[in-house]
Amino acid sequence: MIKTIGLSKRFGGKLAVNALDLSIDQGEFFCFLGPNGAGKTTTIKMLTGLLKPSGGRAELGGIDIQKHPVATKSILGYIPDTPFLYDKLTGREFMRFVAGLYQLPKEVLNGKSEELLELFEVRHVGDQLIENYSHGMRQKLSFAACFLHDPKIVIVDEPWVGLDPKNIRFVKEYLKQKTREGLTVFMSTHTLSLIEDVADRIGIIHQGVLLHTGSIKDILTLARTPGSLEDVFLELTRGENE
């Protein structure tokens, strides 16, 4: 469902992402790990079409996002770490706006929008301006908006910020349930304890290079001494200068 072939990004003299080859199947929950500045955000920006790769290509649902951006983005949902939402729109107005962007029929909007607002517990504030929302409420609204058009692929960048434990559990279970229904999730996060509950496969990136991919079990076997995922991650991404 997601395939990158030699995907690279160079900023001046610095190679931020170096020939990334990745293949993620439909219905897979893939977690992307790496220390700060490893190239996770740059990869996400290339996958969502926000950045143009310096080399290689990214295919989502078998379509090259650079060649056919509109078609690709129609099947894609994106949840950023700091959700940008229009402060002067109400939650309900924002949902309608997103429905317009994705060209959803009105009848789908009316039913589904309310359903998602209810599901993500923001229906009661649906008529309030977003500027009055807390960070967690904004995050929940961006989740609701993301699923409005039934995406086939969801790219999530550190989704837990601002969510309370109850909502973290809900989001985790919701995403997992969706993958069982065929959704592909690509998630970048630092919260290793949460990954262990949801990830089908993990990819570890360090200094722009994809070091390893595999299930949690596979990754744990990479450690020289047995330990937790956190121990393995720290060992694999230990800097040369440390």
């Binding site: 229009y86 002067k88 729109l89 924002f94 309608r96 706006f97 317009g100 962007l101 060209q103």
Partner: peptide, 21 residues
């Protein structure tokens, strides 16, 4: 609704909400 219209609709709503505020 075309996508450009959706953005403009949102902008008009924002303007209306700003005037209301």
């Amino acid at each position: 609704m075309t996508r450009a219209k959706a953005i403009l609709w949102a902008k008009i709503r924002i303007g209306r909400n700003q005037v209301a505020s």
